Amino acid sequence: MNGTPHNHPPLAVRISSSTEDLAVLDPLLAAASAAVGDVPALLDLAETAEAAAPKPGAGRTAFLWELLASVTAVDVAAGRVLEPHLDAAAILDQAAGFTDIRFKGVWGVFAAEAAGLHLTAEPAGGGVRLYGSKPWCSLAAQLDHAVLTAHTEDGGRAAFAVDLHARGVSFADPEWTSRGLREVPSGTVHFDGVPAVPLGGPGWYYRRPGFAWGGMGVAACWLGGAVAVARGYRESLLKSADAGREPDQIALAHLGEIDRTLTALTSYLAQTASRIDAGDLPGGQAWSEALRVRGHVAAAAERIQALVSQNLGPAPLAFDEAYGKRMADLALYIRQHHAMRDDAQLGALTLKGDHRW
């Protein structure tokens, strides 16, 4: 019951683009398939993909999400490596009025916080230097640069670009024991007087519409992982039928639920991408929509994983490496969603009147 169809090239995930337009992704998806488990190759893939990826909000947001979803459908870890690199490129593009940093090498985005760890940005000699520690920095020791957030003198937080090869940067052992995303360990990075370039000033990172767009890009990756699980399930039913075991009503009902779930999701993402490109999601409305998109996709992906796991039972988890990797990778990746806490945030915005109903 291998989750990857045999003798078939990787397929793109369609949100709204034509089949002909999606065909340009074929070489990228073939490269992603060849790079599974190979971190240097995945990092090279991220640089290659950046040249083909449109910026969010620039008229082809749906295609950007299709690219992210399609790569993740090939390998969840590949999508996990690709997404922050493209997000960093978009952030620097949005900050063009504040900096002229050239985007080169492989980038990460580190904006998480953790108890007991604190990163501050302090003025120094006409510039800014970073002091302290930043948690949840995926693949930091293998990246070239990062966009990260740090606390400022005014008590807020701001975004900065930093060279991860600079003197004063050190990497703690991630002590990564996860069974999911094994090749993408996240650990703590320490900064001791490291020069950094401000991006947009205090609060800009969170106020810009691109913050919401980036959050929806992550959801596009989750969608790709869910599509991969669904495709693997359909393939397993077809293989069983070829062997003389036709799927029963429950197996077919679950496949039907998966189909209508994914069809609804892709339609919703297509509509949302179109609204972004049309400028129909200004300011705070963009973040409300991001919470809706992320909540819908995360819940759907978890539901699809549950349905498939119930139907296929323990065998593929125990004996099918590709299936087990995909399920573990996606389960961990989705945990970037904060579930009911994000719904509570959306509820607070809805209470203030930010809704369409």
Score class of each variant (00 low, 15 high):
130 L>Y: 10
160 F>C: 09
89 A>F: 05
80 R>K: 15
320 D>G: 11
65 W>Q: 12
152 T>I: 12
128 V>C: 13
249 Q>C: 01
141 A>I: 00
192 D>W: 01
69 A>Y: 09
116 G>I: 04
183 E>H: 08
119 L>Q: 10
163 D>G: 04
235 E>F: 07
334 I>W: 01
228 A>V: 02
244 G>K: 11
70 S>F: 05
183 E>I: 12
216 M>N: 05
276 I>Q: 12
175 E>N: 14
349 L>R: 14
26 D>M: 00
235 E>T: 09
89 A>W: 02
352 K>Y: 05
138 S>F: 03
212 A>V: 06
141 A>K: 13
179 R>S: 13
199 L>A: 05
46 A>M: 06
279 G>P: 05
16 S>E: 14
90 A>F: 02
305 Q>L: 13
270 A>D: 13
209 P>D: 08
122 E>Q: 14
214 G>H: 11
100 D>Y: 01
39 V>K: 05
297 V>R: 02
33 S>L: 01
274 S>P: 00
254 H>D: 14
37 G>V: 12
320 D>Q: 11
88 A>L: 07
186 S>Q: 15
14 R>L: 08
311 N>A: 15
244 G>M: 10
119 L>K: 07
76 V>R: 07
209 P>N: 11
185 P>L: 10
49 A>K: 01
224 G>K: 10
107 W>M: 07
231 R>E: 14
280 D>M: 10
223 L>F: 03
126 G>Q: 04
207 R>L: 13
128 V>T: 15
287 W>I: 12
122 E>D: 11
132 G>Y: 01
199 L>R: 11
187 G>A: 05
261 T>M: 05
272 T>H: 09
163 D>A: 02
240 S>H: 10
319 F>C: 04
153 E>A: 15
252 L>T: 06
347 G>Q: 13
214 G>C: 10
256 G>D: 14
323 Y>M: 02
300 A>H: 02
172 A>P: 02
210 G>I: 13
311 N>Q: 15
308 V>F: 05
197 V>M: 03
129 R>P: 01
31 A>F: 01
212 A>F: 09
314 P>W: 08
238 L>K: 11
223 L>Y: 04
124 A>T: 08
355 H>D: 10
155 G>N: 03
315 A>G: 08
161 A>G: 10
212 A>S: 15
201 G>Y: 04
217 G>P: 02
260 R>F: 13
329 D>S: 09
275 R>S: 12
349 L>H: 02
113 E>A: 12
69 A>C: 09
37 G>E: 12
149 T>V: 11
321 E>I: 08
180 G>E: 03
56 P>L: 07
20 E>K: 11
211 F>V: 00
292 R>L: 11
244 G>V: 07
148 L>Q: 08
238 L>W: 07
319 F>R: 13
63 F>H: 12
187 G>L: 08
55 K>F: 12
325 K>E: 10
255 L>K: 05
81 V>W: 03
193 G>R: 10
35 A>E: 04
345 Q>L: 13
127 G>P: 02
196 A>R: 09
315 A>H: 06
96 A>C: 06
19 T>G: 14
327 M>P: 00
276 I>P: 06
156 G>T: 14
330 L>F: 03
268 Y>H: 14
321 E>A: 14
17 S>Y: 01
215 G>D: 10
55 K>S: 14
63 F>M: 09
214 G>P: 00
6 H>Y: 05
107 W>Y: 06
315 A>T: 11
66 E>M: 06
88 A>D: 05
347 G>P: 02
225 G>K: 03
24 V>S: 14
100 D>F: 01
201 G>D: 06
